[in-house]
């Protein structure tokens, strides 16, 4: 991030303030908390997408499928742990959440590795072919989840101790959303730390700027990319798992629906930028909640309008990468 890039960071508090006069304080508090939590979850899912694009210029429209698989895997694990889910203690609930999220991340990371090897590796450098094959793979993945988990929506009970809400100044903040927000925040902090402080993070950041030069310095960017792809799909799976519990229901169409939101987040943030995606995800989460409350019919339009507005202001996104 460069000096002088503070304006985009202010966009989130400005949006929070701008929404306040449009509704009562209690509603504002509920919607803001829920919007920020949704944003953190969106970030969890979008962080991999932005790195995958930034590092290897790969447009992966299948990313949403990993979110969908993560959600279904979490639902399956959830169904096998009714004792832990219904237990009144926080520790048991968190254990169930860790089991569901961990299984989703592991399986999706593994699927991501296989997907990179079988599909993505063949279409490096060819955007049109990437779009065609990853959109195709998305359809296949959706149908696969219908075959495996059936055509009907699966429902997940909220973990017993996290289903209730804190009441603050008349506004309700669901406890589970705080857990989701904490997880998203932790993922953001961890990614930032790895990118800023480790050798591997340094090579990733350099590779996002100029892949060829990184290779001429002796680093194998492709090998690194496989690792980033696996981490990205694992995060998508984890995000999907959290989303499943957050929404309480999973359908085969989930991945496809979220793909649009995830690309919105990544484009708003600046392709390849992790911090940008974080801001973009918070804005999308807040706008979705505010507009969904104020003018539900405009909810779908709101994020497109947000994207258009951001791109008019900053054509390369909120925190674009420096490309040499």
């Amino acid at each position: 991030m460069r000096a002088g890039d503070t304006a985009p960071i202010l966009a989130v508090p400005l949006l929070l303030l701008a929404a306040l006069p449009a509704m009562g304080f209690a509603d504002w508090l509920t919607l803001s908390a829920s919007g920020l939590a949704m944003g953190m979850l969106l970030f969890l899912m979008a962080s991999g997408l932005t790195l995958i694009f930034g590092l290897m210029d790969v447009l992966n429209f299948t990313h949403g499928a990993f979110v969908g698989f993560g959600a279904f895997i979490a639902a399956s694990v959830w169904a096998r742990l009714p004792g832990l889910v219904a237990a009144p203690g926080l520790a048991a609930n968190l254990l169930a959440l860790a089991a569901a999220g961990g299984a989703a991340a592991l399986v999706c990371g593994g699927l991501g590795l296989a997907f990179e090897r079988v599909v993505i590796r063949r279409v490096y450098g060819a955007h049109l072919r990437q779009i065609l094959i990853t959109v195709g793979a998305m359809i296949v993945a959706e149908q696969m989840s219908v075959v495996i988990w059936g055509p009907d929506a699966l429902t997940l009970a909220k973990p017993a101790s996290l289903a209730s809400s804190f009441i603050v100044a008349g506004g309700a903040v669901e406890k589970f959303r705080l857990v989701a927000a904490a997880l998203g925040l932790a993922a953001f902090a961890a990614l930032r730390l790895v990118l800023a402080r480790t050798r591997i993070g340094l090579v990733v950041r350099a590779g996002v700027e100029d892949r060829e030069m990184v290779e001429a310095l002796g680093y194998r960017v492709r090998r690194l990319f496989v690792f980033v792809f696996a981490v990205g799909t694992a995060l998508a799976g984890l995000g999907g798992a959290m989303w499943a519990v957050y929404a309480g229901t999973v359908t085969a169409g989930l991945g496809g629906e979220l793909t649009v939101l995830l690309f919105t987040v990544v484009v708003i943030g600046g392709l390849g930028s992790v911090s940008g995606s974080f801001l973009g995800a918070l804005l999308v989460g807040l706008i979705t909640n505010y507009v969904g409350f104020l003018a539900p019919k405009l909810a779908l339009l709101a994020n497109v309008a947000l994207m258009a507005g951001v791109l008019l202001w900053r054509p390369r996104g909120l925190l674009p990468l420096v490309r040499t």
Partner: peptide, 26 residues
């Protein structure tokens, strides 16, 4: 290219190949 570089060859392209967003130290 990575294998060639690892033989002990450093390359400075005409465009210098610096990473503009990374610090001098990095």
């Amino acid at each position: 290219p990575p294998a060639i570089a690892r033989l002990g060859i450093a390359y400075v392209p005409e465009t210098m190949g610096l990473f503009a967003g990374l610090s001098v130290r990095e």
